[in-house]
């Protein structure tokens, strides 16, 4: 392009402007990109440094496969339920004709609860739904319902789901409430006056408009649950068979017998969260033709 233009003005300028973000770039490279690259490269290396697919192949054992499967299921279920319940609560507050005073406390509380994850959250649920927890004891003494006997265990898959929802739901509320506010009253009224029922309005107008936001939050919630270590660890200790716990144990003391298998395990986590996000971006591009 520069060829057919006569040489006028400065011929070449060092991109000094880019120096302005040099500190940020250095930080990002050192503490975000290089460590990630190290994992990715390590996943394809022998302990001696040679190239191999062996680590990836070794992931294909019953124990690791089931760990991934449990993790994916856990993340998917908590993201799905988190989105559904969070959406319902946000919609109740925005459209349900509830007093205006409810909204601000709910959003503040959501901010708190979405950050109240990790170790203390596990304690709270143990004190509530654990063997001698508040709800467990209350149900047993007042109604004779024995959760244990009914097969409920806080340390099981569904126990984890219930616990994870405590930070997943509020995150959805925080993100989707502004999106719900963005639905103009005129759209609903225009639909109504054109003869559409409430259901038709939601199916043909509101949900398609909200779809990208919901999908984005779903991807975020999925990654959020997939990488969570502390809650599960404090709840169940190192024996629970989900990927982050397995990786945690591996980093602490090489339980897999192959140091580079840890890289492969971590690489698998990146692949899955990245895949979830690419899926999101792809669907978003498809569903957002109507946006600039």
């Amino acid at each position: 392009m520069a060829d057919d233009r006569p040489a006028q003005g400065p011929r070449f300028r060092w991109p000094v402007e880019w120096l302005g973000i040099l500190p940020f770039a250095v930080f990002a490279v050192l503490f975000l990109i290089l460590p990630t690259m190290k994992i990715v490269v390590g996943a394809f290396q022998t302990p001696e440094g040679g190239f191999t697919f062996q680590n990836i192949i070794e992931l294909n054992t019953d124990s690791i496969r089931s760990a991934y499967w449990t993790s994916i299921k856990l993340s998917f279920v908590t993201a799905l339920l988190g989105c559904a319940v969070g959406f319902a609560m946000a919609a109740a507050v925005v459209f349900g004709g509830l007093p205006k005073g409810i909204r601000s406390p709910l959003l503040t509380f959501s901010g708190v609860a979405s950050n109240f994850a990790g170790v203390p959250l596990a304690f709270a649920f143990i004190a509530t739904l654990g063997p001698v927890g508040l709800v467990t004891v209350w149900l047993r003494t007042e109604f004779g319902i024995n959760l244990r006997a009914m097969g409920f265990n806080l340390l099981s898959f569904w126990g984890l789901v219930i616990t994870y929802l405590f930070f997943q739901i509020p995150l959805m509320i925080l993100i989707i409430t502004p999106a719900l506010d963005g639905l103009k009253r005129e759209w609903r009224e225009a639909a109504a006056v054109l003869g559409a029922t409430g259901v038709q309005y939601w199916r043909m107008v509101a949900l398609p408009i909200l779809f990208p936001s919901i999908l984005g939050t779903f991807a975020l919630l999925f990654a959020n649950a997939f990488g969570a270590v502390a809650t599960a660890f404090a709840l169940t200790g190192p024996q629970l068979n989900i990927v982050p716990i397995k990786l945690f144990a591996q980093i602490r003391g090489d339980v897999l017998g192959n140091p580079n298998l840890g890289y492969a395990l971590a690489f698998g986590m990146i692949v899955i969260t990245a895949a979830a996000n690419f899926l999101y971006i792809w669907l978003r591009v498809r569903s957002e033709r109507w946006l600039k």
């Binding site: 103009k184 005129e186 759209w187 009224e189 225009a190 639909a191 043909m204 107008v205 398609p208 408009i209 109507w290 946006l291």
Partner: peptide, 10 residues
Amino acid sequence: FQAYALFPNL
């Protein structure tokens, strides 16, 4: 309507 009440997704 006053503002652009067209459905933006259609």
